[in-house]
Amino acid sequence: MTLLEVNDLHVTYAGDPDVEAVRGVSFTLEEGETLGIVGESGCGKTTLAQAIMGALPDNGRITGGEIIFDGQDITHLSNRERREIRWERMSMISQSAMNSLDPVYRVKDQIKEAIQEHRDVSDAKSYERARELMELVGLDPDRVEDYPHQLSGGMRQRVIIAMSLALDPDLIIADEPTTALDVIIQEQILYRIKELQRELGNSMVMVTHDISVVAETCDSMVVMYGGELMESGNVDEIFNNAHHPYTLGLQNAFPSVEGEKRDLTSIPGSPPDLSEPLEGCPFASRCPFAAPECEETVPVQEPVDGHRVRCHEPVPFEQIRDRSGEDETWLSQNKV
């Protein structure tokens, strides 16, 4: 069963100038599955997550497309209708949320508030639930008495996860849930999130810039660049059979402790300015394989069922794959 369907979504921030941060993104998420959204800083990941959650900043607006959640079109719900879905049916672990806990309230009061905002539950019941949630995320329940500053960064992040689970949502959107943490705590938290998902059966959207995290925790993935989707599909398929030069560039830029050591490539240049309209492929100006037609249109290819690539494939894909592993390919200014 499809839980979430995003069709040709556009999001614009009003300002001087306006910024179109999401530019026609589509994907689906099945029940119980985890979808990874990757891409570099500023490509629109958080905006996309907030749009789904109905939690865009005041100047952000959905300017096109639709979001279907559990069969219901939620694109243009009123704030009140949105609030009913938010947190009860979907919740969000936002980027750097661990610094957003209120320093003057004890953990138990913050969890209690998260529960009582949506459900008519007694203080005693909420307190019980707070302790239960703490255990669920691997914290000592007695620490509900603590203030945020008494907890380490990793513990605060667990509290945030506990709060996102408070109302048993069907969908959890996690925006860079472990980015500021060391590898040991990251592993503990990601493992816990996956364990809980197995127990509770919820679906998840995992936003991250780390493709290794996607490889280890997600079923399917979307690669974004400049507000647009570049490539999407099943995680195994994308890692073993990536077609898009940007996806391949990211993969070759990533270090690994596994296998033989290899030189990493980098992708020179910088992402497009999202306040400008753009024809053609947003990656064209950095793409060593770009051809003139790339500046005009971006066709969608489907090499395997469910694997979508938005690229002209100006040179045969096998060549793109081989050459994208070499640093010279990316450093050369000469376009094919």
Partner: peptide
């Protein structure tokens, strides 16, 4: 062991 690897055959 804690470092994630970019390989989908590895699950956490």
């Amino acid at each position: 062991d804690a470092v994630p690897v970019p390989n989908p055959d590895h699950n956490i």
